[in-house]
């Protein structure tokens, strides 16, 4: 770990000022990823701004039925919150599929969005990695790449985003509220994370000096027909090889509205709203789901070790949609996939 200066921000203004003052300053909330990476000498911030005291710890139920989750609300609090459980059970399920109870207690909503890839090469400073050290190359291409991307990768980076929660947020079309030197702005979830292209060092579209203040969920809750299905190398406490957040509105056996997001397959939670729209109005059957899976995976490409993710994702998409259609979401403590 590199030594750093430490300041405790009491207000959002403090935090923004501290960020503005130092281009290498980093915000510290739950710390479950940043401290981890600092210990591996991957992250080397010169200044740490502790934002744990900022008043961003509320879950607000807004009059229009939407929910605003403060950036510092812990993952566990969100997962067990009665209003979130009732209105957005898909989000709760996805959170409970991730990490461990201890990590979910510490990890925050904003931090979850900002967690970095689990790519072995990113985590090992003795290997090349364009995300960690732009221009150094990608060790994972041609290397050990079991956990890597099959969609949206570039010749510079094949890393995946590791979050479970974000896959559900992508499916639920959440809004990320950020505040920065230029004021407040809302970022639609699909625009928050980015693909690696020529700049894999950038995980998301935030600008330096900005702070996530909340994540807002509005509109369709998909509380009746949803499922979060996660496949991994052991049955708990493991990152996804492939995960699927599926949400459906079904009327008379026909799809009225649908959302599907994939985890473990791309540099960002993968969602294709054009494909979703194409399948609206079709019968909620296995055939439809299989066609949708093919459509979503049309551009999928394996890297060798992870070739299996393509058929795995295809099957997982169909299964998660079947679970959603049947109104029998995957229960995360139940390791049998119903």
């Amino acid at each position: 770990m590199r030594p750093f200066s430490y300041t405790r921000a009491e207000t959002l203004g403090d935090a923004m000022a501290a960020l503005a003052a130092n281009p290498t300053a980093r915000l510290l909330a739950g710390g479950t990823n940043l401290i981890d990476l600092m210990k591996y000498d991957v992250e080397r911030p010169a200044a740490i701004v502790d934002i744990n005291r900022l008043p961003l710890k509320e879950i607000e139920e807004l009059p229009d039925g939407s929910i605003r989750i403060g950036a510092l609300v812990s993952n566990a609090t969100v997962a067990h919150h009665p209003a979130v459980t009732e209105r957005y059970p898909l989000l709760c399920s996805a959170i409970l599929a991730g990490a461990s109870p201890q990590l979910r207690n510490a990890a925050t909503t904003g931090g979850n969005l900002l967690q970095r890839t689990r790519c072995y090469y990113f985590y090992d400073p003795s290997t090349p990695c364009n995300k960690r050290e732009p221009g150094s190359g990608c060790g994972a291409i041609g290397g050990v790449n079991r956990i890597h991307a099959i969609l949206g990768a570039s010749e510079h980076c094949i890393a995946t985003h590791p979050s479970d929660m974000c896959v559900a947020l992508a499916a639920l079309a959440a809004i990320v509220e950020v505040e920065g030197p230029d004021g407040r702005r809302d970022i639609p979830f699909s625009d928050f994370h980015r693909l690696p292209d020529d700049h894999p060092e950038r995980d998301n579209t935030m600008r330096h000096g900005e702070i996530i203040t909340a994540v807002r969920l509005e509109g369709n809750h998909f509380a009746g027909h949803h499922s979060y299905l996660k496949l991994r190398d052991r049955l708990s406490y493991a990152f996804a090889l492939v995960s699927v957040a599926a949400a459906l509105d079904v009327k008379n056996g026909m799809i009225v509205d649908m959302r599907i997001a994939l985890g473990g397959v791309a540099h960002k939670p993968w969602r294709d709203s054009l494909a979703e729209a194409e399948f609206a109005g079709q019968p909620a059957t296995e055939e439809t789901f299989a066609a949708l899976a093919d459509r979503l995976l049309a551009g999928a490409e394996g890297q060798g070790d992870n070739d299996f993710k393509i058929p795995m994702a295809r099957k997982a998409i169909v299964r998660a949609l079947k679970q959603a259609a049947a109104g029998t979401p995957q229960v995360q403590s139940d390791k049998q996939i119903r």
């Binding site: 985590y123 052991r234 708990s236 990152f239």
Partner: peptide, 18 residues
């Protein structure tokens, strides 16, 4: 010649749920 999953998150010993 390098072990890449040199940690307990990616070297999977059985967890309780297994």
């Amino acid at each position: 010649g390098r072990i890449m999953n040199h940690n307990l998150a990616e070297y999977h010993v059985p967890a309780h749920a297994d």
